[in-house]
């Protein structure tokens, strides 16, 4: 066996064949014996290995057209572009309003927009329950939501598919030409930063906790206390629930729970977690859209109540 400390790796193609399964297994593919002496190599890095040449070019069959599809392949990317544009434009506008993001005791409930939570900037002081704030931060607290949960969604494996297809047209549909002259995928800056998705996932969990606290606080009646439920309470609870489902169904979450494990039988807890997240992961797309829509709706609801367009209907 070769030493892993050796600076030079010298191998023949038959190395590693005879020791497979203690030479007991029959039927493993074996390189022809007469090739052995031809392939003695000296390699110190992966880059030293000579790549197997791939024959490029060759005439392709079929007509030279963008696609032969006649179905409505364009509907899905068009709908994606429309919906994402509306939500992103609305969220950006809402974040920079820096007002009407909180409904206080005057409206019988503490409701805060999910785009403005955690509200820890200077203008939150005195309006939102909880005294801790950053006194020098004068601009909108919504910038936090725009960067961290926004980054979590921007690097999400599902949204990547959606916007690569919808906005970048790479490709717009299956078997539809992407029309770009060059393509390097996610191997270079800035798209190589998509690999930071797991960090956004962990940071977004903090926001989930804060928004869950917001939802619980929305049950609280002002004054002498007590518990009540309004439509706004239900909106914030549904929003927090979908955010947790969105995080739990995330591909990075599935990997960190157990996807990186090779022997599940030796890691029963991680296997259990992996089995729990796997069916959620299969519905990641649906949860992603529902959650995104509800975040925008929750902000709109709080904004309308806070600006006095209507009052939050009390259920009990």
């Amino acid at each position: 066996m070769m030493s892993r400390q050796s600076p030079a790796v010298r191998r023949s193609p038959m190395d590693g064949v005879d020791d497979r399964a203690g030479a007991k297994c029959q039927g493993w593919p074996r390189a022809p014996r007469d090739l052995e002496e031809d392939y003695e190599r000296v390699s110190t890095t992966l880059q030293d290995l000579k790549p197997v040449p791939v024959e490029l070019g060759g005439v392709r069959g079929g007509p030279d057209v963008r696609t032969l599809r006649r179905d409505g392949w364009w509907r899905s990317p068009a709908a994606t572009v429309a919906f994402l544009t509306v939500v992103v434009v609305y969220a950006t506008w809402a974040v920079f309003q820096n007002s009407h993001f909180f409904v206080g005791a005057a409206s019988h409930r503490d409701l805060i927009s999910p785009l403005y939570s955690p509200c820890i900037t200077a203008n939150c002081y005195g309006t939102v329950t909880g005294g801790w704030h950053i006194s020098w931060w004068k601009i909108s607290p919504g910038l936090l939501a725009l960067t961290i949960p926004g980054g979590f969604r921007a690097t999400c494996y599902y949204y990547r598919k959606a916007y690569y297809r919808g906005f970048w047209q790479s490709p717009p549909g299956c078997a539809v030409s992407d029309g770009h002259s060059r393509y390097t995928g996610e191997t270079r800056f800035p798209l190589i930063l998509q690999n930071l998705h797991r960090y956004f996932f962990v940071l977004a969990l903090v926001f989930n906790v804060v928004l869950t606290i917001d939802a619980v606080m929305a049950f609280r009646l002002p004054g002498d206390g007590g518990i009540g439920v309004s439509v706004g309470t239900l909106v914030l609870v549904a929003n927090a629930t979908l955010l947790w489902l969105y995080s739990a169904s995330c591909h990075a979450c599935r990997h960190l729970c157990g996807g990186q494990v090779n022997e599940f039988s030796k890691h029963p807890i991680r296997y259990r977690l992996w089995k729990l997240t796997t069916p959620l992961n299969a519905r990641h797309m649906q949860i992603a859209w529902a959650s995104l829509a509800l975040v925008a709706f929750a902000d709109l609801y709080v904004r309308l109540v806070a600006s006095g367009v209507f009052s939050d209907p009390k259920i009990f």
């Binding site: 191998r11 590693g16 390189a31 110190t44 992966l46 290995l49 197997v52």
Partner: peptide, 12 residues
């Protein structure tokens, strides 16, 4: 990865 790649039949 280098040790693994050296076993690939494509190298031959």
């Amino acid at each position: 990865a280098l040790e693994a790649a050296l076993d690939a039949p494509g190298q031959h």
